[in-house]
Structures are given as C-alpha cells and as structure tokens.
Design a protein around this nucleic acid. Structure first.
Lengths: 142, 142
DNA sequence: TTCTATGCAAAAGCTTTGCAAATCA
DNA sequence: TGATTTGCAAAGCTTTTGCATAGAA
C-alpha cells in the first residue's frame, strides 16, 4: 500500500476528504528525503506550481502526523521540523554541533533500551527519539 | 564550586558582568527542579518580588546555556524549555503521550550506545538526549 | 446538496532587538 | 568614568483561527 492509499484510508476513517491540496502536500513531502518545516514545504510547493496557503500546509501537517506518515523531529532551534516515515525504518540522529551535519542511524540496542526502561517504569512504550550531539570527523580536525 | 561561582567565572572569562538580575535569575532557576520556560521563570521571579524584564530573562538564559549551567530540553510543543544541569547527573526522559507525565531516568546502556554509535560514524560524542514516548500505567487503564 | 476544506487576513504566541537610562567594575 | 546591561516597547517569526467562499462526496 502506497502512502497515498494510507492517507486516503486515514482520512476516510476520520470522515475527512482527500482534497487536491492535501494530495499535493503529501506528494511534495515524499519527493524529498530529510527534514523540512512548514515554510520549506510551502515554497517547494510554490516552486512546483502549487499555490497552497500556509494555513492549509499547517493543517495538513497535523493530519499527516496523526496518520503516521510523518513525524516531528527536534532540530534544536525554535520552529518545528518534520520528516516522513512511511516506508522508512525507524532511525535516530547524530548531529554535529559545529557544522550542523546530521547523520541518521539505527541501532537495535535503542529498541532494547526502550523496552527495558518502559518495563522499569510501567510505561507502554510507543516510540522514541534519540539525538546524540558531538563533532564530526572533519570538524574535529580543525 | 557552587553554581554562582561557576557563573561568575564564566562571565569573567567573557568579560561580562554579574548583575543583580543575572544573579537573581540564576537563583530562581536553582530553587526548583524540573523543566521551565522563560515565562515560568519570569513569573516565579515576580512572585519572589523580583521584577526583571522578559528581555533580560531571555538574554540570561542564553548566557547560562553557554556557561553549561542549564540545557535546553525538547518537550515537544512549540516553545523552548530548559532544565538546570549543574550538580545533577545526566538523565533522559520518558513522557506519557496521554497525560503529559514526565519521568526522568538514567541508564548506563544509553552511554554505551552513545559511544558505540559515535565510533561507528567517527563522531566525537558530547551529549545526547533520549525521549521515549508512551503511556503511563494509569493512562493505560483507561 | 450538504458538510468539510481552503484562503485570506487578522490574531496570537514566543523571542529578539533598538535605544535611552541605569548600573557595574 | 566608561562600557555593559537593563527595561520598555516595537518588531519579527512561526503558528493558529474566524469567516466567507469553494469544493469533495
């Protein structure tokens, strides 16, 4: 099942409609990888000839998060950023505090850890996000 | 060395001054544990009879972060929150997505994991933050 | 046809900044 | 004294919201 189908299904389950704008926003998100914020998306769509208001972009990001197609990632600074997660395995982030370079990684130990901690505190774990800050190899040389 | 001394030292090293306001803000932060944002701090100070402008609060939070006395924590929603780190061991967070309850925990496996991942990607790890989202015991019952 | 979604512009946070007056070293 | 800091108010950002119009189903 593709991401559009997934979205359509979610919308139907909530009795919401699949509009031209919602479909365009979803496509806009999946043509790129990596992180984006509402503003990035707004201008990317505009470049692609789609004039969709920011209000709609914000409203749709909310829906896509609820549908489990994207998730919010903490990038440090003031505003909210997202990344799409459909068809991608879970991963965490390694961020260079010097140049901002970001590496995505996946490690089974994190999953184990999540289970262990949740058991300890009687939580039912749903997801996690791990950010490791440091200096990448090239910044370290300087 | 206490936190005030640490701050004083930092300020001196940057040729900045220790003002009445900066000292009051620092104290205000260390009387509580847990997370706070600029607004919380502003009102806590005001309750304590200290009328310090928000501009100064924001400016001082920046300095304290640079001095390594507080750190920013990602609490999910739009605005920035901080916690003090002076004299406290490192810890991560478990957050209930239903009631917002937050538990701090510390697990040596996280440290190991940080080292392992950094080695793998030739990063020099400095710090990390792990957030695990889930449902706490009481929310699970509902 | 009916109810939801969009677009616009205004409002609503939160944070930063310019500048004159106050304050620290 | 001389440079930095403060407070205020204004400006800047990002995000949200009200409402008339457009558009799915």
């Amino acid at each position: 099942m593709g991401y559009l189908e997934t979205f359509r299904k979610y919308l139907a389950s909530e009795e919401l409609k699949l509009t031209r704008q919602r479909a365009a926003i979803l496509d806009g998100i999946f043509v790129t990888h990596g992180h984006f914020d509402a503003d990035d998306l707004f201008f990317a769509l505009r470049k692609g000839g789609k004039r969709i208001s920011k209000a709609t972009v914000y409203r749709t990001l909310e829906l896509l998060t609820a549908a489990g197609l994207i998730r919010e990632v903490d990038v440090g600074k003031g505003h909210r950023a997202f990344e799409h997660i459909f068809g991608r395995s879970h991963h965490d982030h390694l961020i260079c505090t010097s140049c901002g370079k970001m590496v995505e990684f996946d490690d089974p130990v994190v999953e184990e850890l999540q289970n262990r901690v949740c058991r300890r505190f009687s939580f039912q774990g749903e997801s996690h996000s791990l950010r490791i800050l440091g200096r990448c190899a090239s910044c370290r040389k300087r």
